[in-house]
Amino acid sequence: MGLSAADIDALWLTLKLATTVTLLLLLLSTPLALWLSSGHSRSRSVVQAVVALPLVLPPSVLGFYMLIAMGPHGPLGWLTQQLNLPTLAFSFTGLVLASLLYSLPFVVQPLCNAFRALGQRPMEVAATLGAGPFDRFFSVILPLSKPGYLTAAVLGFAHTVGEFGVVLMIGGNIEGETRVASVQIYDHVEALDYASAHTLSLLLLGFSFVVLLFLYARPASGKHSTSRVAQHDGSDSSRSPNHESENAAHKDNWL
């Protein structure tokens, strides 16, 4: 039960893809999640629904549309032609692009939840202490939503590793370029090489389990962040700015 060179290539490619996609997603999702969590509006609902689409859509549907978009008559294809770039379909870049869409909800959602749980109060406090918008983000929001970022990174990474349908549609099956681990397993099974399929599958199974274990076990080690989030949420909703809490029956001690 050893790993062939092709297997290692596939694993390495998967790692490269998932890392690239996770890092890009963390960057892109931060402003998006900040905006989504900052209030309620019709435009936010629409964007949120679009972001969540990959959760319910069959990956082949997403892959199909991406393939069309990257084709010579699609907008992305047109763009790459205008810029004299190689075509995106069946390339690693195309795969990254498709995976960004595919894993977007898995990164945006945890960040949204983290920002919502934080509430506006820490931002307001920081502003009254003289911190500008970027200062507020880096010195208050980022450290306070670290658990959210960790969840988002782990979920985004794991989900990208588990990608299959989109890869097959967009990337095809080019060794070293688009043949990721999940596709490699499919190849092994097609070739009736069950032993190799077992090895890779077991690796992915173990990886997924460890990731989930990490996610579910974390609240115990990170207790103080979760309890803080709960407290903040409670106090913010019960004392919204326009609602002054009344404490009518109070008696004061004098002297």
Binding site: P122, E124, V125, L144, R228, R239
Partner: peptide, 9 residues
């Protein structure tokens, strides 16, 4: 602020 608003981190 009315309630404790210290940065918990």
């Amino acid at each position: 602020f009315q309630e404790a608003s210290l940065f918990e981190h």
